[in-house]
Design a protein around this nucleic acid. Structure first.
Lengths: 131, 131
DNA sequence: TTATGTATATCACTACACTGATACACGTAA
DNA sequence: TTACGTGTATCAGTGTAGTGATATACATAA
Protein backbone atom coordinates (compact mmCIF):
# COMPACT_ATOMS: atom_id res chain seq x y z
CA UNK A 1 0.00 0.00 0.00
CA UNK A 2 2.98 2.31 0.27
CA UNK A 3 3.99 4.54 -2.59
CA UNK A 4 6.72 3.94 -5.16
CA UNK A 5 8.59 6.56 -7.19
CA UNK A 6 7.31 4.87 -10.34
CA UNK A 7 3.79 5.91 -9.43
CA UNK A 8 4.76 9.54 -9.87
CA UNK A 9 4.63 11.18 -13.27
CA UNK A 10 7.00 14.11 -13.64
CA UNK A 11 7.21 16.19 -16.79
CA UNK A 12 10.22 18.50 -16.43
CA UNK A 13 9.39 20.39 -19.60
CA UNK A 14 5.72 20.92 -18.85
CA UNK A 15 6.37 24.35 -17.40
CA UNK A 16 5.02 23.39 -13.99
CA UNK A 17 7.92 23.44 -11.49
CA UNK A 18 9.03 19.91 -10.68
CA UNK A 19 8.74 20.38 -6.94
CA UNK A 20 5.15 21.50 -7.38
CA UNK A 21 4.33 18.44 -9.44
CA UNK A 22 5.68 16.28 -6.62
CA UNK A 23 3.69 18.15 -3.97
CA UNK A 24 0.44 17.92 -5.92
CA UNK A 25 0.85 14.20 -6.49
CA UNK A 26 1.65 13.44 -2.86
CA UNK A 27 -1.50 15.33 -1.87
CA UNK A 28 -3.52 13.40 -4.43
CA UNK A 29 -2.21 10.05 -3.18
CA UNK A 30 -3.13 11.04 0.37
CA UNK A 31 -6.66 12.07 -0.58
CA UNK A 32 -6.97 8.91 -2.61
CA UNK A 33 -6.13 6.77 0.41
CA UNK A 34 -2.93 5.40 -1.10
CA UNK A 35 -0.93 6.64 1.87
CA UNK A 36 -1.60 6.02 5.54
CA UNK A 37 -0.30 7.78 8.62
CA UNK A 38 3.05 6.36 9.64
CA UNK A 39 4.06 5.19 6.18
CA UNK A 40 7.22 6.56 4.64
CA UNK A 41 7.62 8.49 1.43
CA UNK A 42 10.37 7.29 -0.91
CA UNK A 43 13.68 8.82 0.14
CA UNK A 44 14.86 12.03 -1.47
CA UNK A 45 17.65 10.22 -3.27
CA UNK A 46 15.49 7.34 -4.43
CA UNK A 47 12.83 9.65 -5.82
CA UNK A 48 15.44 11.86 -7.43
CA UNK A 49 17.28 9.08 -9.18
CA UNK A 50 14.19 7.29 -10.44
CA UNK A 51 12.52 10.48 -11.63
CA UNK A 52 15.76 11.77 -13.11
CA UNK A 53 15.83 15.02 -11.19
CA UNK A 54 18.09 16.58 -8.59
CA UNK A 55 17.78 15.44 -4.96
CA UNK A 56 17.50 19.06 -3.85
CA UNK A 57 14.37 19.46 -5.93
CA UNK A 58 12.70 16.55 -4.13
CA UNK A 59 13.98 17.84 -0.81
CA UNK A 60 12.35 21.17 -1.51
CA UNK A 61 9.01 19.49 -2.21
CA UNK A 62 9.22 17.45 0.98
CA UNK A 63 10.19 20.53 2.98
CA UNK A 64 7.07 22.34 1.78
CA UNK A 65 4.93 19.36 2.67
CA UNK A 66 6.48 19.37 6.13
CA UNK A 67 5.60 23.04 6.60
CA UNK A 68 2.01 22.15 5.69
CA UNK A 69 2.10 19.45 8.35
CA UNK A 70 1.52 16.70 5.81
CA UNK A 71 4.72 14.83 6.54
CA UNK A 72 7.22 14.69 9.36
CA UNK A 73 10.96 14.45 9.04
CA UNK A 74 12.45 11.46 10.86
CA UNK A 75 16.20 11.91 11.10
CA UNK A 76 18.21 9.18 9.52
CA UNK A 77 15.09 7.48 8.20
CA UNK A 78 13.14 9.72 5.90
CA UNK A 79 9.81 11.46 5.60
CA UNK A 80 6.85 9.93 7.39
CA UNK A 81 3.20 10.63 6.66
CA UNK A 82 1.89 12.64 9.57
CA UNK A 83 -1.49 13.99 8.57
CA UNK A 84 -4.59 11.87 8.39
CA UNK A 85 -6.48 13.62 5.63
CA UNK A 86 -9.45 11.33 6.24
CA UNK A 87 -8.91 10.36 2.60
CA UNK A 88 -11.74 12.63 1.40
CA UNK A 89 -15.07 11.32 0.27
CA UNK A 90 -15.82 10.81 -3.41
CA UNK A 91 -17.35 14.25 -3.91
CA UNK A 92 -14.35 15.95 -2.37
CA UNK A 93 -11.95 14.00 -4.55
CA UNK A 94 -14.00 14.68 -7.66
CA UNK A 95 -13.85 18.34 -6.79
CA UNK A 96 -10.05 18.14 -6.62
CA UNK A 97 -10.10 16.68 -10.11
CA UNK A 98 -12.31 19.33 -11.65
CA UNK A 99 -9.63 21.89 -12.45
CA UNK A 100 -7.57 19.39 -14.43
CA UNK A 101 -10.69 18.28 -16.28
CA UNK A 102 -11.70 21.86 -16.91
CA UNK A 103 -8.40 22.81 -18.49
CA UNK A 104 -8.38 19.71 -20.68
CA UNK A 105 -11.88 20.40 -21.97
CA UNK A 106 -11.12 24.06 -22.61
CA UNK A 107 -8.12 23.01 -24.63
CA UNK A 108 -10.29 20.64 -26.61
CA UNK A 109 -12.71 23.41 -27.42
CA UNK A 110 -9.94 25.78 -28.43
CA UNK A 111 -8.88 23.00 -30.77
CA UNK A 112 -12.32 23.18 -32.33
CA UNK A 113 -13.42 19.74 -31.14
CA UNK A 114 -17.01 18.85 -30.34
CA UNK A 115 -18.01 17.42 -26.97
CA UNK A 116 -18.34 14.04 -28.61
CA UNK A 117 -14.86 14.26 -30.11
CA UNK A 118 -13.45 15.26 -26.71
CA UNK A 119 -15.20 12.37 -25.00
CA UNK A 120 -13.75 10.05 -27.60
CA UNK A 121 -10.22 11.02 -26.54
CA UNK A 122 -11.12 10.42 -22.89
CA UNK A 123 -12.70 7.04 -23.52
CA UNK A 124 -9.83 5.96 -25.73
CA UNK A 125 -7.32 6.70 -23.01
CA UNK A 126 -9.38 4.89 -20.35
CA UNK A 127 -9.70 1.86 -22.62
CA UNK A 128 -6.01 1.75 -23.49
CA UNK A 129 -4.90 2.24 -19.89
CA UNK A 130 -7.08 0.03 -17.71
CA UNK A 131 -7.00 0.62 -14.00
CA UNK B 1 -14.23 34.47 -36.44
CA UNK B 2 -11.35 36.46 -35.07
CA UNK B 3 -10.08 35.94 -31.56
CA UNK B 4 -10.83 38.00 -28.46
CA UNK B 5 -8.73 38.23 -25.30
CA UNK B 6 -11.70 36.88 -23.34
CA UNK B 7 -11.32 33.57 -25.15
CA UNK B 8 -7.96 33.05 -23.50
CA UNK B 9 -7.74 31.50 -20.05
CA UNK B 10 -4.66 32.50 -18.12
CA UNK B 11 -3.87 31.17 -14.69
CA UNK B 12 -0.92 33.13 -13.32
CA UNK B 13 -0.58 30.90 -10.26
CA UNK B 14 -0.80 27.60 -12.10
CA UNK B 15 2.97 27.31 -12.27
CA UNK B 16 3.00 27.32 -16.06
CA UNK B 17 4.70 30.50 -17.27
CA UNK B 18 2.14 32.96 -18.55
CA UNK B 19 3.84 33.44 -21.88
CA UNK B 20 3.73 29.69 -22.45
CA UNK B 21 0.02 29.58 -21.70
CA UNK B 22 -0.52 32.28 -24.31
CA UNK B 23 1.60 30.48 -26.91
CA UNK B 24 -0.14 27.17 -26.37
CA UNK B 25 -3.56 28.73 -26.70
CA UNK B 26 -2.71 30.63 -29.86
CA UNK B 27 -1.48 27.37 -31.37
CA UNK B 28 -4.67 25.63 -30.31
CA UNK B 29 -6.86 28.35 -31.85
CA UNK B 30 -4.91 28.06 -35.08
CA UNK B 31 -5.26 24.28 -35.22
CA UNK B 32 -8.93 24.65 -34.37
CA UNK B 33 -9.50 26.92 -37.33
CA UNK B 34 -10.46 29.93 -35.21
CA UNK B 35 -7.76 32.02 -36.83
CA UNK B 36 -7.15 32.57 -40.52
CA UNK B 37 -4.12 33.90 -42.36
CA UNK B 38 -4.14 37.69 -42.42
CA UNK B 39 -6.21 38.09 -39.28
CA UNK B 40 -4.73 40.02 -36.38
CA UNK B 41 -4.10 38.83 -32.86
CA UNK B 42 -5.32 41.16 -30.13
CA UNK B 43 -2.76 43.88 -29.49
CA UNK B 44 -0.17 43.41 -26.78
CA UNK B 45 -1.77 46.10 -24.66
CA UNK B 46 -5.30 44.86 -25.13
CA UNK B 47 -4.36 41.30 -24.23
CA UNK B 48 -2.29 42.42 -21.29
CA UNK B 49 -4.91 44.67 -19.79
CA UNK B 50 -7.79 42.24 -20.23
CA UNK B 51 -5.84 39.28 -18.91
CA UNK B 52 -4.36 41.32 -16.10
CA UNK B 53 -0.75 40.64 -16.95
CA UNK B 54 2.21 42.71 -18.03
CA UNK B 55 2.44 43.84 -21.67
CA UNK B 56 6.02 42.60 -21.86
CA UNK B 57 4.83 39.11 -21.03
CA UNK B 58 2.44 39.13 -23.98
CA UNK B 59 5.09 40.70 -26.16
CA UNK B 60 7.48 37.87 -25.31
CA UNK B 61 4.87 35.28 -26.20
CA UNK B 62 4.23 36.96 -29.56
CA UNK B 63 7.98 37.23 -30.16
CA UNK B 64 8.35 33.46 -29.72
CA UNK B 65 5.47 32.83 -32.07
CA UNK B 66 7.15 35.09 -34.62
CA UNK B 67 10.36 33.08 -34.38
CA UNK B 68 8.29 29.98 -35.11
CA UNK B 69 6.88 31.69 -38.17
CA UNK B 70 3.35 31.51 -36.83
CA UNK B 71 2.74 35.23 -36.82
CA UNK B 72 4.29 38.27 -38.40
CA UNK B 73 4.97 41.50 -36.62
CA UNK B 74 3.48 44.59 -38.28
CA UNK B 75 4.87 47.59 -36.49
CA UNK B 76 2.31 50.06 -35.30
CA UNK B 77 -0.49 47.60 -36.01
CA UNK B 78 0.01 44.37 -34.22
CA UNK B 79 0.62 40.73 -34.92
CA UNK B 80 -0.79 39.17 -38.06
CA UNK B 81 -1.37 35.48 -38.57
CA UNK B 82 1.16 34.33 -41.12
CA UNK B 83 1.14 30.57 -41.09
CA UNK B 84 -1.62 28.50 -42.57
CA UNK B 85 -1.53 25.46 -40.36
CA UNK B 86 -4.16 23.80 -42.54
CA UNK B 87 -6.20 23.74 -39.32
CA UNK B 88 -5.40 20.08 -38.68
CA UNK B 89 -7.86 17.28 -39.24
CA UNK B 90 -9.85 15.86 -36.35
CA UNK B 91 -7.37 13.09 -35.55
CA UNK B 92 -4.51 15.54 -35.41
CA UNK B 93 -6.42 17.85 -33.10
CA UNK B 94 -7.49 14.98 -30.89
CA UNK B 95 -3.87 13.98 -30.67
CA UNK B 96 -2.98 17.47 -29.50
CA UNK B 97 -5.56 17.08 -26.77
CA UNK B 98 -4.35 13.72 -25.51
CA UNK B 99 -1.65 14.94 -23.16
CA UNK B 100 -4.06 17.21 -21.27
CA UNK B 101 -6.55 14.37 -21.04
CA UNK B 102 -3.85 11.97 -19.94
CA UNK B 103 -2.71 14.15 -17.06
CA UNK B 104 -6.27 14.76 -15.90
CA UNK B 105 -7.06 11.05 -15.85
CA UNK B 106 -3.82 10.21 -14.05
CA UNK B 107 -4.69 12.77 -11.42
CA UNK B 108 -8.11 11.18 -11.07
CA UNK B 109 -6.58 7.78 -10.48
CA UNK B 110 -4.09 9.12 -7.96
CA UNK B 111 -7.16 10.49 -6.20
CA UNK B 112 -8.48 6.95 -6.05
CA UNK B 113 -11.40 7.56 -8.39
CA UNK B 114 -12.88 4.90 -10.65
CA UNK B 115 -13.18 5.40 -14.39
CA UNK B 116 -16.88 5.94 -13.92
CA UNK B 117 -16.31 8.58 -11.25
CA UNK B 118 -13.79 10.35 -13.51
CA UNK B 119 -16.23 10.30 -16.42
CA UNK B 120 -18.85 11.77 -14.17
CA UNK B 121 -16.66 14.83 -13.57
CA UNK B 122 -16.10 15.19 -17.31
CA UNK B 123 -19.77 14.89 -18.20
CA UNK B 124 -20.78 17.27 -15.46
CA UNK B 125 -18.45 19.94 -16.78
CA UNK B 126 -19.64 19.46 -20.36
CA UNK B 127 -23.25 19.72 -19.24
CA UNK B 128 -22.68 22.83 -17.14
CA UNK B 129 -20.64 24.56 -19.83
CA UNK B 130 -22.38 23.99 -23.14
CA UNK B 131 -20.50 24.80 -26.29
C1' DT C 1 4.30 69.90 -45.56
C1' DT C 2 4.65 69.99 -40.69
C1' DA C 3 3.18 69.29 -36.08
C1' DT C 4 0.69 66.76 -32.83
C1' DG C 5 -1.82 63.09 -30.48
C1' DT C 6 -2.58 58.39 -29.84
C1' DA C 7 -2.07 54.04 -30.96
C1' DT C 8 1.37 50.39 -31.41
C1' DA C 9 5.69 47.25 -29.82
C1' DT C 10 10.14 46.85 -27.33
C1' DC C 11 14.58 47.72 -24.76
C1' DA C 12 17.15 47.90 -20.31
C1' DC C 13 17.04 46.94 -15.82
C1' DT C 14 15.59 44.75 -11.53
C1' DA C 15 13.70 41.26 -8.60
C1' DC C 16 12.53 36.80 -7.84
C1' DA C 17 11.90 31.66 -8.65
C1' DC C 18 13.59 27.07 -10.13
C1' DT C 19 17.20 23.68 -10.79
C1' DG C 20 21.36 21.36 -10.00
C1' DA C 21 26.34 20.41 -8.04
C1' DT C 22 28.78 20.02 -4.07
C1' DA C 23 29.75 19.40 0.54
C1' DC C 24 28.00 18.76 4.95
C1' DA C 25 25.59 17.12 9.42
C1' DC C 26 23.03 13.75 11.58
C1' DG C 27 21.04 9.01 12.59
C1' DT C 28 20.89 3.90 11.93
C1' DA C 29 22.68 -0.64 11.75
C1' DA C 30 26.24 -4.10 11.76
C1' DT D 1 33.76 2.37 15.20
C1' DT D 2 32.64 1.95 10.48
C1' DA D 3 29.75 2.03 6.62
C1' DC D 4 25.86 3.56 4.86
C1' DG D 5 21.65 5.88 4.85
C1' DT D 6 18.99 10.02 5.68
C1' DG D 7 17.92 15.28 4.68
C1' DT D 8 19.87 19.99 3.62
C1' DA D 9 22.72 24.51 3.45
C1' DT D 10 24.94 27.12 0.12
C1' DC D 11 26.05 28.89 -4.21
C1' DA D 12 25.89 29.47 -9.26
C1' DG D 13 23.40 29.44 -13.53
C1' DT D 14 19.24 30.25 -15.90
C1' DG D 15 14.53 31.59 -16.79
C1' DT D 16 10.35 34.57 -15.91
C1' DA D 17 7.75 38.74 -14.73
C1' DG D 18 7.32 43.43 -13.94
C1' DT D 19 8.65 48.74 -14.21
C1' DG D 20 9.81 52.68 -16.64
C1' DA D 21 11.50 54.75 -20.59
C1' DT D 22 11.72 54.65 -25.60
C1' DA D 23 10.93 53.94 -30.61
C1' DT D 24 7.70 53.38 -34.44
C1' DA D 25 3.30 54.00 -37.25
C1' DC D 26 -0.54 56.46 -38.55
C1' DA D 27 -4.44 59.73 -38.59
C1' DT D 28 -5.59 64.39 -38.15
C1' DA D 29 -5.33 69.31 -38.19
C1' DA D 30 -2.89 73.61 -38.90
Amino acid sequence: MTILPSQFEIHPSSGVPIYRQVIEQVRAFLLGGHLQVGEMLPSVRQMASELGVNPMTISKAYARLEVEGVVERVRGKGMMIKLQTTSGNVKQRQSELSSAVRSAILRGRQLGLSDQQILHVVNKFLKENPQ
